[in-house]
Simulated assay, not measured.
Amino acid sequence: MTTSTATTLANVVASPPTGRPKAVVFDHHEYAASVILRGGPVPWDNPTAYAAFFAQAQGLLRPDVALLELNRLYGHQTAGNTGLETEMAARSRTGFALRTLLANDDLNLAVLDFVTVFAKTARQPVVLRIPSPMVWLTGTHHFSGAEHSSDLDADNAENASMYVSDWLRAFAGLPIAGLLLDNRTPAGAARSVHVPLEAYTPITNLASNYRWTLGQLDDDRMRLQGDPAVGAYIPARFWLEPDVALPAGDFYLGELPSAASPEGVLARLETLG
Rank of each mutant, 00 (worst) to 15 (best):
T86Y: 09
S15I: 11
L70H: 04
H141W: 08
R123S: 13
P125D: 01
N46W: 10
H29G: 09
Y74V: 00
I36Y: 08
G145A: 13
E87L: 15
S144I: 04
L137F: 09
T86P: 01
A119V: 02
A23T: 06
A122L: 06
F143M: 06
L73S: 02
V115D: 00
K120H: 13
E69N: 15
A23I: 05
L61H: 04
L102N: 00
G80P: 06
G39Y: 09
P16I: 04
P41N: 03
T116M: 01
A90Q: 15
N46C: 08
T100M: 10
A119G: 04
G59V: 01
S132L: 05
R99M: 12
R99A: 12
G40R: 13
L107N: 12
L128Q: 02
S132H: 08
R20T: 05
V35C: 06
F26Y: 10
H76P: 04
G139S: 10
H148V: 03
A57M: 08
N108L: 06
N71G: 15
R38F: 03
H29C: 07
G83T: 12
E87M: 14
V35F: 06
G40K: 12
S132Y: 04
N104C: 13
T94E: 10
P63C: 13
T100L: 09
A146S: 13
T116W: 00
N108V: 03
L137V: 08
N71Q: 15
H29K: 15
K22Y: 02
L112I: 07
A97G: 05
Q56S: 14
A32D: 06
D113M: 02
D153L: 06
L70G: 02
L67R: 01
L109Y: 07
H28K: 09
N46F: 11
R93I: 14
G80L: 13
A49K: 12
G80W: 09
Q58H: 12
S15Q: 15
T82M: 14
L37Q: 08
V111R: 02
T94D: 12
H142G: 12
V65R: 00
L98Q: 04
P63D: 13
L60N: 10
D64I: 00
L112N: 09
S149Y: 07
V42A: 13
V65D: 00
A110S: 14
S92W: 14
H142Q: 13
N46G: 08
G39Q: 09
N81W: 11
T100W: 01
H142A: 12
L152V: 08
D64A: 07
A89C: 14
M88P: 05
M134V: 03
Q124Y: 11
R129F: 01
T94C: 11
E69G: 05
F54M: 00
L68A: 11
Y50L: 05
A103L: 14
D153S: 10
